[in-house]
Amino acid sequence: MTLLCLPRRALLMASVTMVAACASPQAKVYTLASVPGAPVEGQPLTASVATVEIPKYLDRPQIVRRTDAVELGVDEYERWGEPLANMVQRVLAEDLAGRLPAGSSTTASRTLSGDEALTIELTLPRFDPDPDGAIVLEAQWRLRYKAGGRSGTQTARIVCRSADKTAAAEVSAMSDALGELASRIALGIR
């Protein structure tokens, strides 16, 4: 059957379908990346990033941005490659692995054996871009030592500027902020 034999209605429907398919935006998927850092001095140890908690407004597949003091913006087509809390846990463990004393090992969750000398519990009350594109990471963490109890809670507020307001630049700045957090945690480990 040739195109000329199709009824006009079918031809019109095929044209509309092709235009709609071309107009549908493709989702962009992002991930945080590990950032190199200098190792601290000390004895090698085993550590795990045991838990990461994030606010419910960030617990979604889409990247969330603040558009003003009380409004959040969500673009349906800019998404995380995995749940944000899981990604933070994995990347923080990678960042710490490069910052802890040589010979240390770090995992992204408690090991089955439970033999790690240190577990890190992390809460991020905030980890998102401001309306001007600056990334704000507010963190609270507790270090639990297997042999010596636990340390007190520590906090940090880290602000990193993104190169521009694109999702790629903001995610890169978020990775930098997480790398800075890993440096601060590593410095606090005894």
Rank of each mutant, 00 (worst) to 15 (best):
A156R: 12
G103L: 05
S105Y: 07
P83K: 10
W80F: 11
E121D: 12
A134R: 15
P125N: 08
E138Y: 05
L84C: 08
L143W: 03
G98F: 06
E121N: 10
R161E: 11
D132P: 04
L118F: 05
T153C: 08
L112A: 10
V136P: 02
P131T: 07
R142H: 06
R157G: 11
T107Q: 10
E138C: 08
E82A: 13
A93H: 00
D128G: 07
F127N: 00
G133V: 04
V159N: 09
E138G: 09
T123A: 15
D130G: 06
L143H: 04
R157Y: 05
D132L: 10
I135E: 00
L124S: 00
R90C: 06
R150M: 09
P129I: 07
Q89T: 06
A102C: 07
M87W: 06
I135S: 00
R150H: 13
G103T: 03
A97Y: 01
R110P: 02
T155L: 10
A156G: 07
L143M: 09
G152P: 12
V159R: 14
G152N: 13
A156T: 05
L96P: 00
G114R: 05
W80K: 11
E138N: 13
L122I: 13
P125W: 04
K146R: 15
V136Q: 10
D164G: 13
Y145H: 12
L92R: 02
D115Y: 07
P101R: 06
D95I: 03
R144V: 14
Q140P: 04
G149C: 08
A108D: 14
L118H: 01
A139N: 02
R99I: 01
R99D: 01
W141I: 01
E94V: 08
M87Y: 06
R90T: 11
A97H: 04
G149W: 10
